[in-house]
Computed example of a mutant assay.
Amino acid sequence: MSRMLAVLDTATAPARGDPELAQLTQDFIALSVLHADGWGVASRHQNRTEVRVGTDPAERGMGSVLASPASARLLYLRFASAGSAVKKRNLQPFVTDDVAFAHNGLLAPRSLMLATLSFDQRHDLRGDTDSEVYFAHVLRALLTRRRSRPAADTIAPIVAELRALYPEACLNALMLVSGELLAIHAPGTVGPPLAAFAARGAKALPPGHDADYNVLSTAVLPSGRRVVATSGIDVIDSHPLPRDAVSAFLPNGLTRSIAI
């Protein structure tokens, strides 16, 4: 039930300031009033992907991270599922071997996915979220793929397998794989968590927290930067990503989508 925003520099994106991007990130951070259970930022710079997470106010912690340069970023705000601890070990994005991953949704029961992981893979899990198990499945496929096989083609069958386990769940996820941005748009049929929002005392929900809650959209900013975002952020000239597909965005501006 998190909110996610990804930004990718392209061949046409300048190094100078980007007021539209600054406004988008400000609007994103403002959602932390409701999605207040931690934040995370994966940043790619000089062929390395690093992650910072925190449970302090996102405006302070996330803002300091965004002040540094990066060729790609993945931003995350958490709204914790019932029973999932608000601790740093449960915060996304998860980063392993230059792969960053963030998921928005609830995959229950978690045990269905755990059953198909090896002992070592289960041992490597550091938190208790379903999203981390989802990442373990995706990461296993990426690390064992043929070098020539595109990441999107590798991930699509994994998402299809998880869809069979969780027919209604939201499998939406954003990823940074080396310098490539991947977006899994598989919203399922589950609606927005209105009861959970109400239990937090939310009386007036932000825009996009409705029937379109699980829609992933993309746009190219005037600067040339590519953005992909969950609902709740007003991105000018954005359009929904292909549904039930893995979309790949490359720094050279090329895009492609693979059906799940």
Rank of each mutant, 00 (worst) to 15 (best):
A100T: 02
L112V: 12
R225L: 07
A141Y: 08
R225W: 10
G201S: 06
R122M: 15
R122D: 13
V227W: 02
V99R: 06
F94S: 04
T255R: 12
V159P: 07
P57Q: 12
D237K: 12
G224M: 06
S111N: 10
N252I: 13
V235A: 08
E50D: 07
A11C: 01
L77D: 04
W39M: 05
L182F: 01
A160I: 06
H103N: 01
L24D: 03
N214V: 00
D120R: 15
D128N: 15
G83R: 09
T144I: 03
S81G: 03
S68Q: 14
S257I: 03
S217T: 13
L77H: 02
Q26N: 11
I258H: 06
R163C: 04
G188S: 06
L106C: 05
T230M: 09
P207N: 10
L216C: 08
Y76C: 00
V65N: 04
V138H: 06
H239T: 14
P69W: 05
V33C: 04
H45Q: 15
V53I: 07
D98R: 09
P242V: 09
F79Q: 06
V227P: 01
G63Y: 00
A229V: 15
V51A: 08
A173S: 14
V133F: 12
F101W: 03
L74P: 00
F197A: 13
P157H: 10
L106E: 14
K87A: 09
S131H: 12
R147T: 14
Q121Y: 12
D237S: 04
H239N: 08
L5N: 09
V33I: 07
G54P: 03
M1C: 11
K88S: 01
L91K: 08
E59C: 05
L34Y: 12
